[in-house]
């Protein structure tokens, strides 16, 4: 099928992008830390023979090209190397933490879409009315405010001051246990039939999700608004008005389809942006996710985690592009593929 061709072509296009990403992560891991061996052994006891042995074991005595080849080959086999601080394979450590990040990001993504599209359409339809001005100012502020600061503000109000929110420390209270099946607490708590835990998971999610999504909700609202304003002023919407179609048909059945075309690309971008943005928020809320793990490891001089995290992020981002392209092609018949 024609759409299959599009997917295949985009998948092939992913290859050079991913090679570029691998080069960068390789440089991060092998070139920036002055001496991985010293890092591994600690500074003091520098027994020369042992150092040489380890260098050989790690392949660090090979030419840089060979090292890169081995690096890429290992990654294609799912081997991201070892996490030097925990001595576990990086992938194992990542697998434990990624669901926490994904849960945060996916919920944020849904919140963004569910809030921004109706808000944007509302602001466009009520253009220059009071509600539109409120939406515009709010989204302008939302775009300007840094997420981590908003997160701290939320903690101050809802945890410290109002005592409505649970402490900003992780995904769930320490008294509650959820048997990990998928790693997604929302799913696992339901699988266990534990509705109380399910509610608690939401309570813990609320503030970080708000902090992660604020900026994206604001951006998307602004984009949907401007795109809808353009659509509502178009000739074809004038035709629809001249045909006496109902406002709801014009705004939602017709206009929204046209108006969502430009934002689709941004929605595709959003997932990647949210993962990136989640890193800081995970630090603020002590969220045991992959972003926080990658950053704290890197700060400790351990570059395996951040390499893996960057590769995963890049892959996710490229896949999101692909999904956005496919959606675009499905909606817009003019796209040739």
């Amino acid at each position: 099928m024609r759409i299959g061709l599009l997917i295949l072509r985009r998948l092939l296009l992913m290859i050079p992008v991913m090679v570029g990403v691998l080069v960068i992560t390789f440089v991060i891991g092998r070139v920036i830390p002055a001496d991985p061996v010293a890092l591994l052994m600690g500074q003091e006891n520098a027994d020369e023979a042992l150092v040489q042995q380890i260098r050989h074991d790690l392949g660090l005595d090979q030419p840089i090209w060979t090292q890169f080849y081995v690096y890429v080959r290992n990654i294609t086999r799912g081997d991201f190397g070892m996490c030097w601080s925990t001595r576990n394979p990086v992938l194992d450590d990542l697998a434990v933490r990624l669901p926490a990040t994904l849960e945060l990001v996916i919920v944020s993504m849904i919140v963004c879409i569910v809030l921004a599209i109706p808000l944007g359409v509302y602001a466009a339809v009520k253009r220059d009315a009071f509600g539109d001005h409120v939406t515009r100012v709010a989204s302008l502020v939302g775009v300007a405010v840094p997420g981590f600061w908003f997160g701290l503000l939320l903690i101050f109000f809802f945890y410290y001051y109002l005592r409505w929110a649970p402490p900003p420390m992780g995904r769930i209270g320490f008294r509650t246990t959820i048997v990990p099946v998928t790693g997604f607490n929302l799913i696992d708590s339901l699988l266990a039939g534990n509705l109380k835990a399910f509610g608690e998971v939401w309570a813990y999610l609320a503030l970080p999700v708000a902090a992660v999504s604020l900026r994206k909700v604001a951006q998307l609202t602004r984009l949907v608004r401007s795109s809808m304003i353009e659509v509502l002023a178009s000739d074809y919407i004038q035709t629809a008005r001249a045909q006496g179609l109902r406002r709801s048909t014009i705004n939602f059945r017709l206009g929204l389809k046209n108006g969502l075309l430009p934002p689709i690309t941004q929605i595709g971008d959003m997932f990647g942006d949210l993962i990136g943005g989640a890193v800081v928020i995970e630090l603020v809320f002590a969220w045991p996710g992959a972003g926080r793990w990658a950053v704290t490891s890197a700060l400790a001089g351990d570059f395996g985690p951040i390499q893996a995290f960057v590769v995963i992020c890049a892959a996710v981002r490229v896949l999101c592009f692909l999904v956005a392209d496919i959606l675009y092609a499905v909606i817009d018949p003019r796209i040739k593929y």
């Binding site: 178009s234 000739d235 074809y236 919407i237 004038q238 035709t239 629809a240 008005r241 001249a242 045909q243 006496g244 179609l245 048909t249 059945r253 017709l254 389809k257 046209n258 075309l261 909606i331 817009d332 018949p333 003019r334």
Partner: peptide
């Protein structure tokens, strides 16, 4: 009244039709 008792068409017919819907769909709405 619009569309039923008063019909109207415009200049630039290509822009006056919605690019994302087939002719049939657009007639159907009406």
């Amino acid at each position: 009244i619009r569309g039923k008792r008063i019909g109207m068409i415009f200049q630039n017919p290509r822009a006056a039709l919605n690019p994302l819907f087939t002719v049939e769909e657009q007639l159907y709405f009406l």
